[in-house]
Structure formats: C-alpha cells, structure tokens
Design a protein around this nucleic acid. Structure first.
Length: 651
RNA sequence: GCCGGAGUAGCUCAGUGGUAGAGCAACUCACUUGUAAUGAGUAGGCCGUGGGUUCGACUCCCACCUCCGGCUCCA
C-alpha cells in the first residue's frame, strides 16, 4: 500500500510572513485556528482531550500524515481514531506500527538478525529479516508471544529527523547493511521512529502508542528476495495482520475461510469440472462438466469473432529452432519452452505462443493494403515450462489455451483496431459482470527495437486508453519484449491479482519476419501487429469465473441446467419424458432417479449448484411442473412455458 | 528455481517406533420416498516414490516427486 509521504505536507503558511497562526478545516466544514507549526496531534487536542488520546492518524487534504508533523494553513483535516477501524489508512498505520513491534521482538529473540524492510500490505503487514539460522513456522508462536508481551508492557513511538550521513553512520555501527542501503536510496528527509529500545528507519506514519493494537496474528513465513530481485540474497519474510479489535480479526479469519470455500481448486473437484495429475504437473484434465463451461466460452468467442471480422486459422504446434530464433523467443523465452530433441534432426520446440505461426501465415503471400486489417484468430494449445513453484491451479498452468488473435494492420489503422479490441473487451467482461483493472505496461529492460519505436507504440496504446476513458495504472517496464501492452487484471477470491486479457502493439516481430504490405503507392510498407487475448487464457478465465460465481453459474453456463427428480418408482417414466422434452429443446438436463429420498436428492442438487430442479410426483403433470430454483424458491409452471422461460435465460 | 509447510481409502481428515481409523462417497439389501442428509450391511489402503537407521518404520533420517502459502517469473 502506498502511504503518502508526510514530507510534502510540511510546508506551512510561512509565505504569509508575520502570521503566527494557521487555520485548518474540519470535516464538518468548521474552521480551527491553531498556532503556527501546530501538528495533527495539536489539532486533535484543540478539539478534545479524548480525541487527542485516541487519535491514530491525521488525513490532511486527503493525504495521510503522521500526527507528530505540522499542519499547513488552509488544509482540510480529518483525525482518525480507533473508531475508524475499517478505514484502510487507519488499518495501515496500525499494521505498520505492529510490523515495528515484530521487528523489535525478532531482534530480541534472535541476536544477530539483520532487519530489512516492513511495510503494511493489503490485509496486514510483513517484515523481512536475514536470520543467522533459518527459522521455521513453529517459531512464529514464540515471536507472537513476544509481541503480546510488548503490547502488555506498552510501547510509544517517537519520531526524529536526522541527516542521511548520521543515519548511515548509525546503521553501519549496528551492522544493519540493508538499512544503510535504504537510507542511500531514500528521498526527502530521513526519519527514525523509536519504540522501547528499537529504532527503525521509517517514513511513517505511526501510532502514538501501542494501545489501539488489540489483535495480532502472525500468518506466515516465506522467502523473499531483497528488493524483489532474485539475484539478491533471499531474506525471510514474516507475514502478519493486526486489528483494532479481536472481533475484527475473527471476522477477517472467517472471511478467509469463506473465501477458501470459493477457491476454484476446491470447487473444481467438488463440482467435477477438472483435476490435476502428478504425471503432468500444471496440466488440467478437463471433466465433461468443465468442458461445458469451456465450450460455452468457445461459443461466445466464435460468435463474437465472426461478428467482428476475425478469421479462424490453424497453425503447427511444433517448429524448428530457426523459427524461434527469428521470432526472438529463442533468446528471450527459451528456458520456458519445451524442447523436442529428435534423433538426427533439428531441435524442435512446442509453441508457447501462436504469434510465429501467424507471422508465417501472413508472410506466405504478398499482401496488399486492400487485405488489411487481417485478423487471424486461433485458440491452440500452448505449452510453457513454468517454474515448478509458480504453478497455481488453473490460474498458472503449463498447458495453456489463449483466445489468441493477431491483427495485421497499417499504421493508420492502429487506433481503430485498438478501439475494436477495447469494445470487444467491454462486451466480454460485461457479459460476466467482471470489473477488471487496466494496466498500461511499458518498455522492459530487455526490449527489442529502438526507443523511438517504443515511443510511438506506447503513445498509441495510451491514446487508446484515454480515448476510451479507461482508468489505468502504469506498469513501468512490464511490457513484453516486443511491445507495450494494455492488460486487464482481476483478483481471485484470496485477493491475488491475475492478468486476464491483454492487447499488445508490436512492430518488432513482423519486422523480424520481413512482413510488409504493398500500399496504394505501390511501395512496400512495414505492417503492424496487434496481439490480443481477451479472456487471456481459457484456464485462468474459468478459474476466475468459478470463484466469481462461487460455483453457482448463471443458467447459460451451468454444466447441468435442469435436474428432474421423480418422487417414487411410478414417476420414473413420466420424468424421463420431461427430461427428453427439455433435452430436445436444447437444454442440459439430467435425471436423478436414485433410490434416495427426495430430500437427499434435493440436497445433492443444491451442492452441485444446479439452477433448476423439477420434482415430479403424483401432484405433477406436464401442464403443472413443480420447479425449485437454486437456493429454494419454488413455483409451478407448465412445460411449454418453462421451455420458453429457460430459452430466455440461455440467450 | 528459492524460502516455509503438507502428502494416510474416491473425497475431507484423525492417528503413531509394535495388527491402519472415522465421516461422506461406492456397492448390497430393506424402505417407495414431496423440496438440503432413511436405515442396516459390505467392500475399499505399496500411509507420495526410492534409499537408510532399527528386532520391527505410516511414524525417525536422507534424496526425489507432487501439492499448499509466499518470492521471482507470467495469460
């Protein structure tokens, strides 16, 4: 989480020389007059003693600020207290302070440990350490106890500003090399926060004291590279979370449990959609019910591609090494490719992407400007030898299927084609009620091509985002090696963000393949390629859908849409006829005539999250069916009317 | 690949240096069922794989495989 630096807010009304007071605006729009140099804490004190005691943070003009820092004239301020227990900023400051308690505890328990960095994050905080001896999860309980001891004793934070030289000298004396490095790269004033006998380099803000920290839990242990770079030493990261009350922590843990019930890996097995086998790690085995969802996505893809002027192609799965050298993958992607060394033959590789095949296809003929734009689409199986530790259910697989397309177009056609992709994206994500975040990813360090070329490509994508009024974050250096990208991200049930759709503008790969078109001027021009996958991959998209719906798919996606339950033996035959009638009308319907009670079979249908259950007994007839919706709502309807209603749900 | 954890019946999980357990699912029988679990019985295990220690290993040690939580990388 990014906390606003306090440095910017320090400027007070000095420019209006001679004034010895400043005014701030409170949330109720009333004004508060304070002596010049007054801090957030002073402001709280001026309002009430109790507020000053309870204050944890001040928000000045929307920016969080440490209570100990001076306010500026004219700022709108808001004092946050433990009563703002759900405010993200109030939680962040609590957790940040708890991270410091963790560091203090670890330093006391493990002499010789080096401390690195410990920020608040989405649902808690972490702190990175270099331990002299490795620790294990069993150690967490001991550390947690030590934090509780600190809380019982009570801690108060004090803040001081020092020069960079002084800070470096101090950390060098303590042998804290990571802190020395951090000071070296710090911007703005260097500040220290001290609680007990523990002093840490920190920008803040922090609590006044540890009283508001009512619940702490250390949640995990992991390796993490210093500064996120795998060439650096791997530190030990301790994760934890903290709350203003025990109830909030309990609620948080409950939500986690609830989220786990929606996990696509769990539901995948429960709903009989897919599974994994250790004989092919990272490669799902799709069950019939999973394929229903897959094919529903395929149907949408084919239908919309057809409407939007795409043409379907099919290209080889394996290519020789020379092709991959031309495409640039041999240099940039080799370690992620499955190679096929054949006896007495060239080295082949299974494709991790469709692009090179589509390049060959485009290059197989002389192309005219009249042919463009040419939109090739192919959802072929791709294989990427992902690092073993990176595999993750359906969200990160080795056998992946993109809803891929490559749009070959002229430079002038780029804006319209990008707009077309964005419109398509909007349609698709809207269909499922997904609300993705857009990220604009720019040139990476290992890019192909010149900065001038990238300036152009990046400008085209950014202009498309602006034109379509899409809010986006910038992923500096996150682009593909051949071009910048617009990526769509959606979070899974446990808050992990996954990239789904992507739109990439590429002039490198067509150039490497010598691809051109003949213009109206009878001169060959370089052709541009837009790589785009809108679901991203079927696998990941289905994972997100399973969690998005919690397995309760809308009628049109549900693997089994209707289940018929005959009450007793005599009802089996008429129930079969109802089933056949609905199946004939094109619905996915099955019959549960097991020798179980109706109650039991209803329960099973609910657990399978089947949208419609029809109980058929003495009271029913084709003119009068008893339908139970998923969740328990019941109504009566004739077969003909039911077919009509269900057809509407399928559209 | 790296750090930490875990692999026991189809699934969810107990167990421990001395004969391998439960619930659900499966199968059989009875019940003929009315909107979230009818009852009884039966069967089901190279306790992830390979080595080692031991009179004896599911249990202790080592290596590997797979999965889980992170890191890095990525659709």
């Amino acid at each position: 989480m990014r906390l606003g630096g306090p440095g910017h807010a320090v400027r007070s009304a000095n420019d209006s020389a001679g004034h010895t007071s400043l005014k701030v605006v409170l949330p109720d729009s009333s004004e508060l007059e304070l002596p010049d140099g007054a801090t957030g804490l002073d402001a709280a004190g001026a309002i009430g003693k109790r507020l000053a005691q309870d204050a944890v943070l001040v928000r000045a003009n929307g920016q969080v600020q440490d209570l100990r820092l001076p306010l500026a004239d004219g700022q709108r301020i808001e004092i946050l207290t433990k009563r703002d227990a759900e405010d993200p900023d109030a939680l962040a400051v609590l957790r940040h302070s708890t991270a410091h308690l963790l560091a203090e505890a670890v330093r006391r328990l493990y002499p010789g440990v080096k401390i690195a960095i410990g920020p608040p994050i989405e649902n808690g905080f972490y702190y990175d350490f270099e331990f002299p001896e490795p620790i294990s999860e069993d150690d967490l309980a001991k550390i947690e106890d030590e934090i509780r001891r600190e809380l019982k004793e009570g801690r108060a934070w004090s803040r001081e500003e020092v020069s960079a030289e002084e800070a470096i000298k101090r950390f060098e004396a303590e042998g804290e090399q990571y802190k020395v490095e951090l000071v070296g790269s710090a911007e703005g004033p260097i500040s220290f926060y001290t609680q007990g006998d523990f002093t840490d380099l920190c920008r803040g803000p922090h609590l006044q004291n540890s009283k508001p920290i009512k619940a702490v839990k250390l949640t995990g242990l992991a390796g993490a590279y210093w500064r996120g770079d795998e060439r650096n030493t791997q530190l030990t990261r301790i994760y934890g979370t903290a709350f203003y009350s025990q109830e909030d922590l309990d609620q948080h843990l409950e939500r986690l449990e609830e989220a786990k019930r929606r996990d696509h890996r769990r539901l995948g097995r429960q709903l009989d959609l897919f599974h994994f086998d250790e004989h092919s790690p990272g490669s799902p085995l799709w069950h019939p019910k999973g394929m229903v969802i897959w094919n529903a996505l395929e149907d949408v893809r084919r239908r919309e591609n057809g409407k939007r002027g795409y043409v379907e192609v099919k290209t080889p799965l394996i290519y020789d090494q020379a092709l991959w050298v031309t495409s640039g993958h041999w240099e940039k992607f080799r370690e992620n490719m499955f190679l096929i060394p054949l006896e007495n033959e060239q080295l082949y590789a299974i494709k991790p992407m469709n692009c090179p095949g589509h390049m060959l296809l485009y290059g197989s003929e002389l192309r005219s400007y009249r042919d463009l734009p040419l939109r090739y689409t192919e959802a072929a199986p791709l294989h990427r030898n992902e690092l073993a530790g990176a595999l993750h259910g359906l969200t990160r697989v080795r056998y992946v299927t993109q809803d891929d397309a490559h749009i070959f177009c002229t430079q002038e056609q780029i804006p319209a084609e990008l707009d077309g992709c964005i419109d398509y994206l909007r349609y698709l994500y809207g269909l499922f009620g997904l609300e993705p975040r857009a990220e604009f990813s720019t040139r990476p360090d290992d890019k192909l091509g010149t900065d001038e070329e990238w300036d152009f490509s990046e400008a085209e994508l950014e202009a498309a985002l602006e034109r379509n009024q899409i809010q986006y974050d910038v992923g500096a250096g996150e682009g593909s090696f051949y071009g910048p990208k617009i990526d769509l991200h959606v979070s899974d049930v446990l808050g992990r963000s996954w990239q789904l759709g992507t739109i990439q503008l590429d002039r490198q790969m067509p150039a490497r393949f010598g691809l051109t078109y003949v213009g109206q001027d009878n001169v060959e021009h370089p052709v541009f390629v837009i790589h785009r996958a809108l679901y991203g991959s079927f696998e990941r998209f289905i994972a997100i859908l399973v969690e998005h719906y919690g397995g309760a798919f809308p009628f049109w996606l549900a693997p089994v849409q209707v289940r018929i339950l005959p009450v007793a033996d005599d009802h089996r035959e008429p129930a079969r006829q109802i089933r056949d009638g609905l199946a004939g009308a094109g619905f996915r319907v099955d019959l549960d005539d097991r020798d179980e009670t109706v109650g039991k079979r209803i329960r099973d249908a609910e657990l399978e999250k089947i949208p419609k259950v029809i109980v058929y007994g003495d009271r029913e007839s084709p003119e009068r069916l008893s339908v139970r919706d998923r969740g328990g709502e019941q109504y009566e309807i004739g077969l003909v009317a039911l077919v009509r209603d269900l057809a509407k749900l399928s559209a």
